[in-house]
């Protein structure tokens, strides 16, 4: 915790419509810098914003008042997959990256005054991994500490039960997982994508493909179904495994794009600038 938490900037492509003022372009009319339209004095009775020139030019001789677009607050949720495959010890575990991201996103949300919520999904959804939207950084830090320590030996079915825990209003959702499951199962998440602005963050550990040895015998145990496989590593097989991961990357990207979301692959370590870049390239 000694290191300063890196933050990133995020934005939504569609203006939000939360009544509470915030940092994001919204559909609400109110106090703001950005001119939206003219309204009649009756509709918005604020003589300070009276536009004399527009009033003179009005063919019906009505008073025209300038109204401005009010920036609104949005809800930001982080949904993390806590299945066994996420908690494999490694150079930097995926859950460590998730914890880093949790702090970073919470900090970013608080800096722009948005609501932040967290849902951790193990085999189901547990109370202890629920953080309803709010603005309490202390609780987030506790969660991040717990998150980097969790050692789960179970699957991640909770991920598919997450929808009822999300607000009805369009929110920005970061979906953290390694997505190491069948694409058919993934389609159970499709409902999420229409309602909310989802950013799938794919956490992969490069040690599982690029970091494999060229030669030697390795024995792997699947973290979820506990099956073991002995592999006789050689450059050809390593190349095949890397190709398999590349194919998987292509399929995931294709699937997410079909749902209108662009996945962000985080491999190795978390950098906040990657997210800033992501949001600069496209709005969600």
């Amino acid at each position: 915790m000694a290191l300063a938490i890196e933050t990133f900037h995020y934005r939504l492509a569609n203006p939000g419509y939360c009544a509470i003022p915030g940092a994001h372009p919204g559909q609400m009319v109110g106090s703001g810098q950005l001119f939206k339209r003219h309204e009649s004095l009756l509709a918005s009775p604020d003589p300070r914003r009276l536009d004399l020139r527009a009033s003179l030019l009005d063919p019906f001789n009505h008073y025209r008042v300038k109204v401005f677009q009010q920036h609104s607050k949005i809800d930001l949720f982080v949904i993390a997959d806590l299945s066994a495959s996420m908690s494999i010890p490694g150079e930097s575990t995926k859950l460590q990256i998730a914890a880093d991201f949790l702090l970073s996103s919470a900090q970013s949300a608080f800096e722009s005054g948005d609501n932040f919520g967290f849902i951790g999904c193990g085999q189901g959804i547990e109370k202890s991994w629920l953080f309803p939207k709010g603005l309490r950084m202390g609780r987030v830090q506790e969660l991040a500490r717990d998150l980097s320590r969790v050692r789960n030996g179970q699957g991640g079915n909770g991920l598919f039960q997450v929808e009822p825990y999300l607000p009805l209003r369009r929110s920005l959702i970061f979906l953290l997982s390694d997505f190491h499951f069948d694409l058919n199962r993934l389609s159970r998440l499709a409902g999420l994508f229409g309602r909310h602005a989802v950013v799938p963050l794919v956490l992969w550990d490069p040690a599982e493909y690029a970091g494999l040895p060229e030669w030697g015998i390795v024995k792997f145990q699947d973290s979820e179904n506990m099956r073991t496989r002995t592999l006789l590593m050689r450059p050809g097989l390593k190349r095949k495994i890397i190709e398999a991961f590349e194919q998987r990357r292509g399929r995931l990207r294709h699937w997410f794009r079909s749902k209108g979301a662009e996945p962000l692959f985080i491999e190795g370590r978390y950098e906040a600038s990657a997210l800033t870049n992501y949001f600069l390239q496209r709005g969600v």
Binding site: H180, Q221, D222, R227, L231, K240, I241, A244
Partner: peptide, 15 residues
């Protein structure tokens, strides 16, 4: 041999 954990063996091609 003690196995090391791997997140998803199904992705590793058959060999």
């Amino acid at each position: 041999a003690a196995p090391s954990a791997y997140s998803w063996l199904a992705i590793v091609p058959a060999d």
